[in-house]
Design a binder for these strands. Structure first.
Length: 255
DNA sequence: GTTGAGCGTT
């Protein structure tokens, strides 16, 4: 993808990788190629994309053939405004195979010489393996959080609205102009014509039709259900840890 | 349709 014809990594033997940050999410390799090719021989341009959505992640890798050209590109293109955004150009720090890069050039690291490269970055190398749950991305999760919160809010309102409409005003389901417009108007109308005492949502929330909060019941029941088998499951693990090794993580690290 | 610190593909 995003290559000039090759499918995989072309040749990372004598190339200098540059990391382009702060590019827009719409910027593609074709947009960066003419810009970077002006300052040297660009071997390859790669823009990581999300596996799920296929959307750009906001940064790109530009590989130059010579270091001086790469340096020039960094000096000339760093801070350049591309597509309305100021990009950041710098030498790549990590390699695709977790190999260390020196000044953008990939240097093969041989840990068998006695020196172990334990000083590696604490960050995990493969996030594709953990592409689930909340940590599949760093800041993206933040944005998603915001969105999820927004959606959750809407869902909550929707849910409440449906609940109310079911019990009180079925006309809402028919009304196409649903949303907060009607709600706001109704709210304002109510606040003006109705007494202020009615506005207090406190007692309403307390005397909710659903006397059983889902948040309190869910974990409780789950805890009971999951507690029984969980303990049994932990049993062998503790014994194993006690008998074999205190930290199973060590096995992966290998001394 | 959104977002913004960072480090990559068959």
């Amino acid at each position: 993808m995003s290559h000039f014809g090759s499918s995989g990594p072309p040749d990372i033997s004598d190339t200098y990788s540059l990391l382009i940050l702060n590019i827009t999410f719409r910027t593609t390799a074709d947009d960066l190629f003419p810009l970077f090719d002006k300052y040297g021989k660009v071997v390859d341009i790669f823009i990581p994309k999300d596996r799920r959505t296929g959307d750009s992640r906001g940064f790109a890798f530009v590989r130059y053939k010579y270091a001086d050209e790469a340096q020039k590109a960094v000096d000339r293109l760093d801070g350049r405004v591309v597509d309305g955004r100021e990009i950041t150009v710098q030498f790549a720090k990590y390699g695709p195979n977790a190999e260390r890069i020196h000044k953008g050039r990939i240097v093969e690291s041989a840990p068998r010489s006695g020196h172990r490269s334990r000083s590696r970055s604490p960050r995990r190398r493969h996030r594709d393996d953990h592409y689930r749950d909340r940590d599949y991305r760093r800041s993206r999760s933040r944005s998603h959080d915001r969105y999820e919160r927004d959606r959750y809010r809407g869902k909550d309102k929707d849910s409440r609205r449906r609940s109310r409409s079911r019990s009180a005003s079925p006309d809402y389901s028919k009304g196409r102009g649903r949303g907060r417009y009607d709600d706001d108007r109704r709210s304002v109308s109510r606040s003006i014509s109705a007494s202020p005492a009615r506005r207090s949502p406190s007692p309403r929330k307390s005397t909710s039709p659903r006397k059983s909060p889902p948040r309190g019941e869910s974990p409780d029941r789950r805890s009971r259900d999951g507690r029984s088998p969980s303990r049994r499951s932990v049993s062998p693990r503790g014994r194993l840890a006690d008998s074999r090794s205190p930290s199973p993580q060590n096995s992966d690290v290998d001394e």
